[in-house]
Write a protein that binds this DNA or RNA. Structure first.
Lengths: 243, 243
DNA sequence: TGTACATCAGTGAACGCGCGTTCACTGATGTAC
DNA sequence: TGTACATCAGTGAACGCGCGTTCACTGATGTAC
């Protein structure tokens, strides 16, 4: 029974969690992926050296933050998907992408943390917890195809066929794409590009010359393109705006 | 005759140029958008305070760097486009996108500078030189449509029609899209999203789990999607890889 | 052409602040007998 | 149940470094007469 945790172990886990949350909160407040030990400590009514009881150094904390953030994103996507009935994969696509978009717009620094230029000396440990968390988060999109197929939808996606090199890449089970047609797998990646492109442009203020409404409409159009790329049926509740 | 420049004015202009280039070189060396006055000065065999003769402060230099970088990107795109015959807009699309992609991969920190999370306290001056330089750079893509139309290509792009809000946005002549069909304008933006998405994913190492060859093939597929979105003919020399 | 003055480039020293990290310590929490 | 010891959380002071920025200065370049 390792379930018996001392009070010390419990508060320790709670403190670690609090440090990470405080760091993320401060990141939002400053609008940077920069994280300052003294600031975190002050926010928690502690002193900076105390943090070294929980994280070896700044890089260690950063790795934990990235993992946590991927986890948060994954949970968001999973919850959003779960809130839409099984038999509406198109609706799930719309809901998940809109949720992702809103999340990135609300927390551009978290988006930057995951998908921006890696920090100065920081190299994510290969095959580490970050990679695993990332795969899990993206798995939510892969699941769309399988739930659509379970419903009998298996229209040909409107994308070019996969090349041998691509097919070889897709065959690796790590990416969760090994048992979908290579056209769908390729389509998934095109969707991913399209989504990331829009979201990074919007979150980093490079689409400010558009009205909110125009941006919304543009995004809805991209959702439609995405659905066609991976051959998903239209969402039952409609696309959400001008179509 | 303001053409008469004193030696002082000439060396001054040259020094400003050298400072900017040194800053960009250092950015590449450190792999960050961070720029350190002392480092620039040392590289130029000067001392840090001397730089204040040329730039009011760090933000001032940053603004200049962004403008310069947009200019560099614009020149790259224009030159690349000009190297392809007028009557091959599809070829121009391929050449420009590949050039852009290579540029971002070689200089991820410059890409970050233009399209990443804006620096800490830095707010780009609205309607400033940066905006103008950005518009000029992107204008090279708009030009694709016009050169295609001049050749008689005017197929319907395979994208949803533009909503009223979008149409209103496109009507603003600033964006150089006011005299193209709204479907084409929308298609342009979808292309832009797709391109930015792929490039940011690749440049920031989020597609490392693919082989170089697989990434190349994926990009070629996206080029084909882009061509169909803005109704460009296929490139005369082919797509460049597995199609 | 030469001289007297103004303007500008660049230096070196210094200020001030932020911030990661170390260290010797105190007090509280847990463990062994 | 109580006592003696080990472990851990957290503190406060300090080190060391980086870096933006200021300032009084020297020497060179340009300008006016």
């Amino acid at each position: 029974m390792t379930a018996h945790l001392t009070r010390r172990e419990l508060t320790r886990a709670a403190t670690i969690e609090e440090i990470k949350q405080t760091a993320l909160t401060l990141m939002r407040r400053t609008g940077t992926t920069n994280v300052v030990f003294s600031d975190i400590a002050r926010e928690m009514h502690m002193t900076a050296p105390a943090l070294y009881r929980y994280f070896a150094d700044r890089d260690d904390l950063l790795t934990a933050l990235i993992t946590t953030t991927y986890g948060e994103l994954g949970t968001l996507l999973a919850d959003t998907s779960a809130a839409v009935p099984d038999d509406d994969p198109g609706g799930r696509l719309v809901a998940m992408c809109q949720a992702y978009r809103r999340w990135a717009k609300t927390h551009p620094e978290r988006y930057e943390l995951l998908f921006g230029l890696p920090a100065p000396g920081y190299a994510a440990p290969q095959d580490g917890p970050t990679t695993e968390a990332a795969t899990r988060a993206l798995g939510n999109f892969m699941a769309l195809y399988f739930s659509a197929r379970a419903l009998g939808y298996d229209a040909e996606p409107q994308v070019p066929g996969a090349s041998p090199a691509l097919a070889r890449a897709f065959a690796d089970p790590v990416h969760q794409m090994h048992d979908m047609p290579t056209e769908v797998a390729a389509g998934m990646l095109h969707c991913w590009s399209l989504l990331q492109g829009f979201i990074s442009l919007e979150s980093f203020c490079n689409l400010n010359w558009f009205s909110d409404e125009a941006r919304d409409d543009l995004f809805v159009q991209q959702l439609q393109l995405m659905a066609s790329m991976i051959a998903l049926p239209a969402p039952k509740a409609g696309w959400g705006s001008a179509g």
